[in-house]
């Protein structure tokens, strides 16, 4: 019995055109927003030039929030109706979310050094980002440890789902907890229209790049999954071939 492998398992390796166009657009957006921030926006009256961190810092925070929320939602979908694509999406969102979480965590203290005079304060939003990042990294490690076992995948997904309500409650806890602290300068206020344009340009540019990263990672994971499926079919074929002489004899 010989089974022919259909061509559909061989994934085209070239990157789809739409993705390339999208990558170029995001790159241009990022360049445009950087140029705008550098050339057009004035320095903040209170904080000086360091305020220019604000644009990408907040953009990264948006990307992180959206990424991690999407990761939880996709994990939930994967638990309710398991599918390889939901799993791949959940993993890509989680990874990209963690990357931007680190961006927020590193740019935040640098900004704080200037505006608050120290790298770290237990300001509610900083604390929230730190805790959520720790949680997301733990889930990421869990998913990496689990490799491709079904149980591991489900456990990772379940933990990602747990992370969403936990983060929501952490948000309240740290807000009330930090309530006693003096609210230092509400830094990075938008003072004029150039700043507003810079802000939205940066947000759009980062979200677009984040989406590109998710799409690229998603494609990579899908390719990996299909490679595994192909290896499995090959193994089936080899096993059947080994049997053939045994059956005839």
């Amino acid at each position: 019995m010989t089974q022919t492998l259909s061509a559909d398992t061989r994934v085209p390796i070239r990157v789809p055109k739409t993705l390339i166009i999208w990558i170029i657009i995001s790159a241009l957006l990022v360049q445009a927003s950087l140029l705008w921030i550098a050339l057009k926006t004035p320095a903040d009256v209170n904080l000086g030039i360091v305020q220019k961190i604000f644009y990408f810092h907040v953009g990264s925070a948006f990307a992180m929030m959206l990424g991690l929320t999407a990761a939880s939602v996709m994990s939930l979908i994967d638990l309710i109706r398991p599918s390889d694509s939901a799993d791949a999406l959940a993993r890509s969102f989680l990874e990209v979310g963690v990357v931007f979480a680190f961006c927020v965590l590193t740019s935040g203290p640098l900004w704080a050094r200037k505006s608050w005079g120290m790298y770290w304060t237990w300001e509610p939003r900083l604390t929230l980002v730190l805790l959520v990042t720790l949680l997301a990294v733990a889930v990421l490690i869990l998913r990496m440890l689990a490799k491709d076992s079904t149980i591991g995948r489900r456990v990772g997904a379940a933990m990602a789902v747990m992370g969403a309500p936990a983060s929501y409650l952490i948000h309240f806890a740290v807000k009330w907890w930090g309530g006693n602290h003096p609210q230092v300068i509400q830094g990075g206020g938008i003072q004029n229209s150039e700043m507003r344009v810079a802000f939205w340009l940066a947000v759009v540019a980062i979200l677009s790049s984040a989406a590109v990263l998710v799409a690229t990672r998603y494609r990579a994971i899908r390719l990996q999954q299909r490679t595994q499926a192909l290896a499995l079919r090959l193994s089936a074929r080899v096993l059947r071939r080994q049997r053939a002489p045994m059956e005839t004899s």
Partner: peptide, 13 residues
Amino acid sequence: LGWAAQGRFILLD
């Protein structure tokens, strides 16, 4: 019935 572990079929057909 088929069962695969580590990308290899242990049980097949």
